[in-house]
Design a binder for these strands. Sequence first.
DNA 1: GAAAGCATTGAATCAATATTCATTCTTTGT
DNA 2: ACAAAGAATGAATATTGATTCAATGCTTTC
Lengths: 209, 209
Amino acid sequence: MAYRETEKMRQRKAEARQRIIECTWACVSEGGFRSARITRIAALAGVATGTIYRHFESREDLFAEIFRLATQREVDKVAEALTVGESTVQRLENALRQFATRALKGPMKAWALIAEPVDPKVEEERLVYRKAYASLFEQAIQDGIAEGCLPDQDARLTSTCLVGAISESLVGPLSPTQTKTPPGHENNDNDLVETIVCFCIRGLTGTRS
Amino acid sequence: MAYRETEKMRQRKAEARQRIIECTWACVSEGGFRSARITRIAALAGVATGTIYRHFESREDLFAEIFRLATQREVDKVAEALTVGESTVQRLENALRQFATRALKGPMKAWALIAEPVDPKVEEERLVYRKAYASLFEQAIQDGIAEGCLPDQDARLTSTCLVGAISESLVGPLSPTQTKTPPGHENNDNDLVETIVCFCIRGLTGTRS
DNA sequence: GAAAGCATTGAATCAATATTCATTCTTTGT
DNA sequence: ACAAAGAATGAATATTGATTCAATGCTTTC
């Protein structure tokens, strides 16, 4: 026996894997999943196409992993936002605002994660993460109900409605075919976010606050 | 000159086209767009694959057409529901309920139209029709604002929120991987619909009605 | 019933990349 | 320095249905 995997090698491989992940995300951020070519990713990462397949089973698996990592970051941000605020309602508002604002800041990324047509394995991840968002909201809503600041409701369902309402109302603005704000509507984004948040909070609270 | 298209022929062609459309919709109703094979459609319609291409430019075009027809039916139903009811709010409730109820009645069809990952040309149609739904709601909301029974709001955006909230909360139940209601939850569907409608109406009105 | 023009057929072709794998290069332990 | 064990390479291959088109069959007109 003359070769055994050493720490140095393990690290080098990890770095390659990391580079592949980063370059894939770079490609996706630029044009979504569909247009991200393995050859391009390999070139960017400075490896051969074959090497990618030592690190990931298949293109779909690679994409699923990228999706998972990227979305987890977003979920974490929302979870974090959900801890900030005096009242439960404020915390929810904060989280919704965070979600929408971040999406509008990186439209192509958000589109890829929220609305781009993707292959089954990635779509599966998407469903998982939609549930993850919904679960975060669900918990907060249940807290709100317990505190008495939200009317009794099926928290699971209404949390899903929140996710749907935000996502849908962002799809138009995010859509890569019409990403540019028409002139004279520059700080529309703020109004957009506020209207969505307002709708959502009303949906939960049933008040005009 | 020995042949000119005659009425009889025109009709025969129209029938073939119609049959192709119906069989395509049958396939889609069964497994969505992705799994609808041209060969299968041709076989069902009793024509050769090549024939399909005299009636439609391409698979995508065929699908886009099928999507248009199917969705238009749904839009019409919603539009119709929107005319029934004493008050604007009741009419909106009615329309939302119609949308959700019909989707739950044909889960695979609804999934194909609302949530299945589809090719660009079909996705384009989907955007068009989401706007169509939103426009219907938008008009009603504006009426409501004018009448004073809805608070002032960006009708375009809140209508989009409605579409998003319903669609999203239906996606889970519709998803072809988990179409069966778990035992003991048989008439969940009604509660589901009512909760969604309630959320939406609250979102619009800001009251607990 | 014959010729001309269209429609239909479906096996063969195409297209577009993801994926493979024989070969080459690197690392490791003695 | 050498051999053993991996790792990396990237040109060649595989895949998968959609799409084409030469051959065949129907309709129509005279």
